[in-house]
């Protein structure tokens, strides 16, 4: 860990006043403290957000609002969240460990860095950590890496489960810098790596996520987050699927589908949604729709199985929601 200065402002205005271009925010600290110890991140200044008012979880006719400083654990068990958006609750409860969920903030969760082992080891090259240094994952150990949205610069998987659920639900993030505010869909917020994998999102220097907004979707009460992982707890996904299904008798009226563990960002699948909409509620429909999830997938040496597994993950989630099991 390198020396840094520390501030704890009490207003968003103050916090987002970019005193130093490389300063970093800290909320729960579950990502940044790790990465500072590993010297993957070496911010000269750390701005503590915990005194800011960005809290509260409320349901309104427009949908759900979650303050960025709310804890993962509190959000997961909030009655409005659990009742209206089971997919959010489940994604959170299958994330990390109870201890981490008790510390980590919702805003921070969306900004967590990849678990790519090369990114976290400063003795290896990494374009995300040191632009232009190279990507050893492409020819190295890449079982946990992405098959969608990859580039010749980076194949690191986006690690957040919550983000997968939120992208499926077409959620937005409210951003603030100084007095100016803007709202971006989460899908637009995240950037593909292309040639600039160090730029993971649209945040400007000093800009903060202040809240998350999830549109109202009454039939999201029929939603789920299925996470396939080697270990039953405290483990990142091999593949995951956030799925909501609107069923009318034996017909599918509408759907939401996004997948995790496979993309360089949380991977929304509007084409799968379209392939489900208006179709009969059958296994054949699910299988045909799931196939569209992997269009353009680029497998690496150790992760080709994800092409198959992610389709299976989607199908299994649909079977559960559709009551076909």
């Amino acid at each position: 860990m390198r020396p840094f200065t520390y501030e704890s402002p009490s207003s968003v205005l103050e916090a987002t006043n970019p005193g130093h271009p490389d300063s970093a925010f800290i909320a729960g600290g579950t990502t940044i403290v790790d990465l500072m110890k590993l010297e993957v991140m070496k911010p000269p200044k750390v701005v503590d957000l915990n005194a800011l008012p960005m809290r509260g979880i409320e349901m309104s006719p427009d949908g759900l609002r979650i303050g960025a400083l709310e804890k993962m654990s509190d959000t997961a068990v909030h009655p409005e969240v659990a009742a209206n958006y089971p997919v959010i609750s489940e994604a959170l409860l299958k994330s990390a460990s109870a201890q981490i969920r008790n510390m980590a903030s919702i805003g921070g969760n969306l900004l967590q860095r990849t678990r790519c082992g090369y990114f976290r080891d400063v003795n290896t090259p990494c374009n995300k950590r040191e632009p232009g240094s190279g990507c050893p994952a492409i020819g190295g150990e890449n079982r946990m890496h992405a098959i969608l949205g990859t580039s010749s610069s980076c194949v690191a998987t986006h690690a957040s489960d919550l983000a997968v659920a939120l992208v499926a639900l077409e959620a937005s993030v409210r951003l603030q810098s100084g007095a100016s505010e803007r709202l971006l869909t989460l899908d637009d917020f995240y950037l593909l790596p292309d040639g600039t994998p160090h730029q993971e999102n649209q945040l400007l220097p000093g800009e903060l996520i202040t809240e998350i907004r999830v549109p109202r979707l009454p039939w999201a009460t029929r939603s789920t987050y299925l996470k396939i992982r080697d270990r039953e707890s405290y483990e990142f996904s091999l593949t995951s699927a956030a799925v909501a299904l609107d069923v009318n008798g034996d017909q599918i009226r509408d759907a939401r589908v996004a997948v995790g563990g496979v993309g360089t960002k949380p991977w929304n699948l509007p084409e799968v949604r379209e392939a489900l909409t208006g179709k009969p509620l059958t296994l054949e429909t699910f299988v045909a729709a799931a196939k569209l999830a992997v269009a353009g997938a680029v497998p690496l040496k150790h992760n080709a199985f994800k092409i198959d597994l992610v389709q299976r993950t989607i199908i299994r989630a649909l079977i559960k929601l559709g009551g076909l099991a």
């Binding site: 678990r115 082992g117 190295g140 150990e141 270990r231 039953e232 405290y234 483990e235």
Partner: peptide, 19 residues
């Protein structure tokens, strides 16, 4: 490289209680 690609407790998986 002869380097262990998973030399930490997040990537070297030991059983949790749930397992």
């Amino acid at each position: 490289t002869g380097r262990y690609g998973n030399a930490n407790f997040a990537d070297y998986l030991v059983a949790t209680n749930a397992d």
